[in-house]
Design a binder for these strands. Structure first.
Lengths: 226, 226
DNA sequence: ATTATAACATGATAAATGTCATAGTTATAG
DNA sequence: CTATAACTATGACATTTATCATGTTATAAT
């Protein structure tokens, strides 16, 4: 079994507040899983009874609509916890979690989290803050959906992906999303997303390197996102 | 000073977990304010350093956009706490809180809330759950904004207002929103909102009694919202 | 290597929604 | 009790965005 005390990722999440004893307890109760790109960690409606700590890779939280489109609510990366909300609310998952790039995740049973929550004030405050952060982001997204055009939201999302996940050696975005997934984040039709990417390409705001995207004029993208 | 132990509203919020001593402490530190319809409790960007407990009336949490439109993120009523998120995140308010109907609110300083959070597990769990509830709602709203038409969102919102706030003796909705505010909730232009209300009226789904709205065919509205 | 499948791309068109103009109606202040 | 402002209403039109059709390119499976 891998010891959690050597896991760098732990330092990035609410779990950083745990003391030595608690980390040992954590290491003894956790289970590690490997999730291949495209596979699900959990699906909408499932009862998870714990949280997943993302050790490596990138995932998406999304909800399938009646017309078959997948609306992406949030992307997650190393150090983030998944399923906190459903666990705290005692509800089945409201969203599905799937891997966008191969992932390694650790499952931590609910009983452990509740125990830490009740016995470690710093941990409960951290957990609270991370849910608050999610709430703020969600509210701001909601406002952007109403107040901004698809073009603005695309510019905004490209900048956000660049900030959050960085770029490869060839300057292209590190997160490799399909056009469909990108459309699912900004909340538009796949074709509209593709069309706008073409436009941005012609305007030399970005460069399309095969399926990859390179940001060429960040200043102009920022202006456009306003 | 009003004693908090006689305040029924307290039973509706996270504060219900407080014990006798804590309630005395609460009563000694709180300040009560009266807010007239249209006035603000706090504005976007303000540092509040505490939370507001809504004793009476109805309020809205909203954000002003560049084009001058007010996007309403959430309505609040008796028993709810305002400003929890900003307080926990140590940030200025992300949204403005204004009264839609005359309100009475109690201000509780941050130090008190943090003290309760650290010393009363049930309180911290309640507070956590209420933020989680807000998060779930916000995520679902976000999905609805993308996946549903304005017409569907209007139907959904009317039903929601009916459920949440109830109706007057004449069967009209109890929350008295302007068309502009209603448009701000569903995220559309005021004219579009008015037009759709007219359509709904003609279809006998609702009846417009002056500025008030009466739901006439709830079943059909539900069908429309899907 | 070849075929099948998924992803990307673009045009044509339709539908939904926003914007501007204008007028009637209700509420409110003096 | 009037006048002034705010709210409601509706038409005409412009714009944005979705949908359907079709072709091309990349990726994966045999």
């Amino acid at each position: 079994m891998n010891k959690c005390d050597q896991c760098i990722v732990r330092q990035l999440s609410s779990l950083k507040a745990l003391n030595k004893d608690e980390v040992v307890k954590l290491a003894n109760s956790k289970t590690t899983y490997t999730i291949k790109k495209g596979e699900a960690i959990f699906e909408e409606g499932e009862v998870t009874n714990g949280v997943f700590c993302v050790k490596d890779g990138v995932g998406k939280l999304s909800k399938l609509s009646a017309n078959g489109k997948d609306q992406i609510v949030k992307l997650v990366k190393s150090g983030e916890l998944l399923g906190q909300r459903s666990m705290i609310s005692n509800e089945p998952a409201n969203l599905s979690a799937k891997a966008i790039a191969d992932m390694e995740v650790c499952f931590i049973p609910k009983s452990e989290i509740i125990h830490f929550f009740n016995n470690n004030n710093q941990f409960s405050l951290n957990l609270m803050q991370s849910v608050c952060e999610d709430l703020k982001e969600s509210e701001n997204d909601k406002i952007a959906l109403v107040q901004k055009t698809v073009k603005q939201r695309l510019a905004e999302t490209l900048l956000h992906l660049h900030n959050e996940f960085g770029e490869n050696a060839d300057k292209t975005l590190k997160v490799q999303l399909t056009r469909e997934e990108l459309a699912g984040i900004i909340g538009t039709a796949t074709e509209s997303c593709i069309r706008l990417l073409s436009d941005f390409n012609k305007l030399e705001l970005i460069e399309l390197v095969g399926k990859k995207i390179m940001l060429k004029n960040i200043k102009a993208l920022k202006r456009m996102a306003e």
